[in-house]
Each structure stands twice: as structure tokens, then as C-alpha cells.
Design a protein around this nucleic acid. Structure first.
Lengths: 340, 340
DNA sequence: GAAATTTTGAGGTACGTAAATCAGAAATTG
DNA sequence: CAATTTCTGATTTACGTACCTCAAAATTTC
């Protein structure tokens, strides 16, 4: 049987009340006595029963998710997963609020972060552009005692406790490896379509992609990246223009959103037999895979990301470390043959 | 606030004791009263607080994992994950026992299953060959009230409550899609190396692979599958023999274990520039990817599988349904570019 | 060394559920 | 209608922890 507070009290030769004071960092215990209790905890290998503690505390974890509004299918899928998690709130002792902000609007994010009350929120998960003001706002919030996790796109220099998303450098490299192998050594140009280089995930994907093409597939030349702000119409126009301007383009790597626009542009050039790799499984990309318009789609499981964010934020609020392997978000590769 | 048993008692106009009798299916309650309580539960949307219940019950979940012994790296990785889960046992209220059996030894599995005492075990997760005697033993165990989950390889006709593993038909299709695209339309033969057709996962992979090649890549002809019982030496001999016998082989799909043998065989034929897809990331396959000997490795995250098995078996013991999306094991595709 | 302060002990209640006892009420049986 | 049997209520203890109060002990301060 695992030891309880009673065992600690007996082992340390103090009363239950003192053990409680030490374990919960309450004042009024001499340093010498604190050491005795801590030694007993160490000796017996005591670990607080979090479920019993939560029951006694009637603890709930108030969490806030911040993500962009708008038609972006991936973000809406993410939101759906958050809503699914909200349905499990009673069982998981969470209380989740969703805040949406205009896409690429750093000021709006900063504003929300600064208005959060640490007394009312224990953790925040946010999808953010990697700009200095957002990083600063995150750091201010962490300073005020709120745990912050980044979602989908990281803020590398910030004090966030965890990043819930895929390794985007590896994702870009994967795309490079796939396109390179699919082209089978034939020379040509690859159009790279991105949303915004202010998003660290897009930056990383572009870097990883360029790295692999440079190292393993020198016969492929990169065109771009063109920035579209993840807007489908902008993507359609940019891709159409590029394809018409340059007959040497034989492949496309779309590392951002606006997949609908990409599909519309491709529909006008079916004869080109382009190798296409895009990101995120949505209704559109799924159909494009099935139709043979896309060769592969790189995906991140947003359900996993949301559940991971909740686990990590809860664990940190309890002062625990999460299972790191469980929190690693995998890079999923879908071909038409393994669509779920 | 979510309703408690007290609220149910008040709402139904009965005592706490009666609510308890109904909720825990204890005898001595008239059908009419049961209905009253159930109606109150329905009206208030009561859900039992599992953590409080477990605390009161001092509940632990005794689980048994059955897996093959021997040098198979994947199985040893699986065992390592089970041992990692055992370290979390105190917090997760599990008590896990590992039983190992000789590989492909159906009788040994049957023997262990039949000797399990339902009073001492609530759930079993096993890696098994798909043979009628194992299926029958699983059904007997389920009949005796033990929850059974299959791990890695399924027992399709059995009464197991859950299969913790990838969709192997889709995995085979994925391998087909990858090899087909990597070959870029060039005709040739693909050697398929399997462990045993008595394993449903190997069967499914072979079927999926053949399906995609037949439908999408008719220029590729399948040789095999050759069966090696997942023995590395047998794999080496089989692959070496096939490569020497047939100069038309341009690709290999290794859908079972014994990857070391495959690598040794390939080392003697580096000039052939074969397209190779294998299963499971291990030290060997990781090195082969890095060396460019393998083009892709299809993987299943055994940590996820173990955690999923534990969650499912626990949930079923509590009469709950797990989050199905969380329990779907993804097919991971690794290129040298996205190795973790 | 008395007074003030800090530290500690003892005991209780609570969280939501499980599980038990025992007395009393209701229904069924003869 | 009495004697059973079946059902129900009231109450208690327990799980492991949190948090509270009050008194007693130990320590520090003057």
C-alpha cells in the first residue's frame, strides 16, 4: 500500500496537522520540523493522492483557449475538439472558456492575455503569431502565475511551459523527403505556398523543407515561399499565377491553410500532373487526396493537441511533470490509401 | 455544480441508501422504486464521480499483459512501455502483471488465459496469433467476466472488447501507396516478407498492400509473401535467396519483424538501389533509414497502445465508454527526415 | 523569569461515494 | 389477520486529503 499522510506523521514523529502544514506550504512550522517531515516523505516515498486532494479541495481547473476566428477549417476543427473537451469537463474537473481573435491580430491576443485574472484562470493555451509583443504578454502572464501552453505554433523565446504541436521543422523535412522521393530524381521546380512567415510553424516548415531539398534533392529548385495569410482566395490567385508564369513547376508544397484555394487552382491545371503535398486533413484536403489531386497530406491530430494541452496545464497546476512521450504530437502522413 | 447522490435521493424522494442500492445494482429494491431513482438520475443528469467512488472503494485495477518473449525488438519495446506504466501504477490505481510466452505458441497463451482467476484479474491485454483455440480461450475468459483487449494483432471473431493497434489493412495499403509512388511508374517486382500468416496483422498488411498495388500500380508485381516466423536469420536467408534468384526485384516490403536480417541481406546488394519499406521503428530500422537503406518505416506507437489498453480496460471495468478518437492508434510513417 | 510570540498537537468537518447495520414500513403469504 | 418476507430509511464509518479551531507546549523577547 502506498503511504498516506498518517504514515508520514508517524514516521516523522509529528502530528497530522504539522504534516499538512509542511505539505501545503502553510506557515508556522520550524525549519527543523519541516526537514523532519520532508525526510519522512523521502524515506517512505510518499506521493500525494491527487484525486483525494482534488475531492477535498473541490478543485476545478479554469482554463482558457485562445485561437483565431474565421473560416480556417483546421482552426474550426481545433475549436470542435475544445468543445468536445468541454463536454468532459465535469469528469475532468476543468472549466474551459474559448476566446477567439481575428487571425494574425497580435494586438487582440495581447489584449486578452493582459486582461486575464490569475485568480480566475490557472492555465491558458493559445495559437499565436510569433511576434515580440505576444511573447512579452505571455511572459507577463506567466509572471503573474498563470501557466501558458502554446498550441499548433510555438513562441520559442517565451516562458510558456509547453508547446502542444508537431515539430514543424521535421514536418517540413518530411514534406521535402516525400516530394523528393515522389519526383524520383526528375529535375524541376517546387512552389512553396505559406500563410505567414510571422507564424513560427510556417517558418519552421519552410526551413525544414529547404534543408532536405538542398541536401538530398538538389535537382529540385524552390520557388517562393509565397505568403497568402492563409486566405483561400489569395492562395488560388498566387498558385494560378505561379503555374502560368513558370512551366517548370512540377510540385507544390502548401505548408499553410487556404487549401480550398489550392484545390481550385489545381483544377485548372490537371494536365500538369503536379506532385502536391499539403497540410492538415480537412474535408477539402481529404477529397483532394481521394481524387488524386494531392499526393500526401501532413497532419497533426488537433484532438490530441487539445487533450495534451489540458493534461499539461492541469499537471503543472498540481506541480507535476507530464508523461513526455504521451505529450509528443506525432506528424501524421496521409496518402489516399490510409485516410481514416 | 454537478448533482450528487444526495441530490438524487432528494429528487427521487427516497433515502441515500436506496439510491446507493440502485446505483450499485444491489438487491432489495422494488422495480417501481428503481424506476423512480433512474428517472431522477436522468432528470438531473447525474454521473457518478469515479474518483470519489474509487477512493471510497479503495479500488485497484489488476491487469495482465500477455506478450511473446524472445529477441523481437518491437515486443521488447512494448514490454518496456508496460514497465513504464507499472511505475505509474500507484497514481493510476492499476496493478499490472506481465506474462510472456514463446512466440507463435498458441497453446501457451490458452494455458495462461484458462488459469486466470476472474476474482483476481479485471482485465487482460494480449498479443496473440489468430487461431481458433486462442479465440475460444478468450471467449471463455470473457464469459467468466474478465475484460479482454487485443494488442498489436487482433482476434477478429472473438469477444474481446477492444483492439489496441493500428488498422493493418490501411498500413498495408499505405506501404503500397508509398512503394508505388517511390517507384514512380517504373515496372518491377516487389518482394513481400512476412512473419506468419497466422498473425492477423500480417495477413491484413499483405492484403492491403496487394489491394493497392493491384488497383493503382499494376506495373508492380508481387513476389511472395515469404514467411519467416519473424526470425532475423530466416529473413536474411529468404531475402538473399530471392534477390539472387530474381534480378527483377526492385522493391521490398517487409511487413513483419526480423528487420536485422533484412538489413544484413540488403548490405550485400547495395548496388541494386532497392526501394524498401519496413515496419516498426527500432534501433536497427532507425539506422537503416539514416543510412538510406530503407526508404520508409511504418510504425505504431507501442507506448500509446499500452496506455490505450490500460484506459480501455479500466473504463470497461467501470462500465464506461472510452473516448474513441483518443484510442485510435495512428499509422506513423517515418522517413529519414522525420525520425524522432 | 514573566510575558509575548511562535510552533505544535488534538480534534473536528468536509469532499462524493461505498458499504454496512438495524429498525421500521410495506407488501406478500398462509 | 397474523406471520412472514421483502423493501426502505436513518445512521455510521471509511477512503485520503484539505482546512479549520482551540489549547498546549516550546521558544523567544524584554
Amino acid at each position: 500500500m502506498r503511504p498516506t499522510v498518517h504514515d508520514i506523521a508517524a514516521e516523522a514523529g509529528v502530528s497530522l496537522a504539522t504534516v499538512d502544514r509542511v505539505l501545503n506550504a502553510r506557515p508556522g512550522v520550524r525549519q527543523k520540523t519541516v526537514a523532519k517531515v520532508e525526510a519522512a516523505v523521502e524515506r517512505l516515498g510518499y506521493v500525494r493522492d491527487v484525486t483525494a486532494a482534488n475531492l477535498a479541495k473541490k478543485r476545478i481547473y479554469p482554463l482558457v483557449f485562445i485561437l483565431p476566428e474565421g473560416p480556417n477549417s483546421f482552426m474550426r476543427g481545433l475549436e470542435a475538439e475544445i468543445r468536445a473537451a468541454m463536454l468532459r469537463s465535469p469528469a475532468e474537473r476543468t472549466s474551459i472558456r474559448i476566446e477567439t481573435v481575428p487571425p494574425f491580430d497580435a494586438k487582440a491576443i495581447v489584449c486578452i492575455l493582459d486582461l486575464l485574472d490569475p485568480a480566475e484562470v490557472t492555465g491558458v493555451a493559445l495559437v499565436a503569431t510569433d511576434t515580440p509583443d505576444v511573447t512579452a504578454a505571455v511572459d507577463r502572464l506567466v509572471e503573474r502565475g498563470v501557466h501558458v501552453a502554446t498550441l499548433v505554433s510555438d513562441l520559442p523565446g517565451s516562458r510558456r511551459i509547453h508547446y502542444c504541436g508537431i515539430d514543424n521543422l521535421a514536418a517540413g523535412r518530411t514534406a521535402g523527403g516525400l516530394i523528393g522521393r515522389f519526383r524520383g530524381g526528375r529535375a524541376g521546380k517546387v512552389l512553396v505556398v505559406a500563410g505567414s512567415m510571422k507564424l513560427s510553424d510556417h517558418m519552421d516548415r519552410a526551413s525544414g523543407f529547404a534543408e532536405v531539398l538542398g541536401a538530398e534533392f538538389p535537382e529540385l529548385e524552390i520557388v517562393g515561399p509565397v505568403e497568402t495569410n492563409d486566405d483561400a482566395d489569395a492562395v488560388r490567385q498566387a498558385v494560378t499565377a505561379a503555374l502560368e508564369a513558370d512551366a517548370g513547376i512540377t510540385a507544390i508544397y502548401s505548408l499553410g491553410a487556404g487549401t480550398r484555394g489550392l484545390i481550385e487552382a489545381l483544377a485548372g491545371h490537371v494536365s500538369r500532373k503536379l506532385t502536391v503535398v499539403a497540410h492538415e486533413v480537412t474535408d477539402h484536403s481529404r477529397q483532394a487526396l481521394a481524387d488524386g489531386l494531392f499526393d500526401a497530406v501532413i497532419n497533426q491530430d488537433c484532438g490530441h493537441e487539445v487533450r495534451s494541452a489540458i493534461r499539461v496545464l492541469k499537471a503543472r497546476s498540481d506541480g507535476l511533470m507530464p508523461i513526455s512521450a504521451q505529450e509528443r504530437i506525432r506528424i501524421d502522413i496521409f496518402l489516399r490509401d490510409n485516410l481514416p
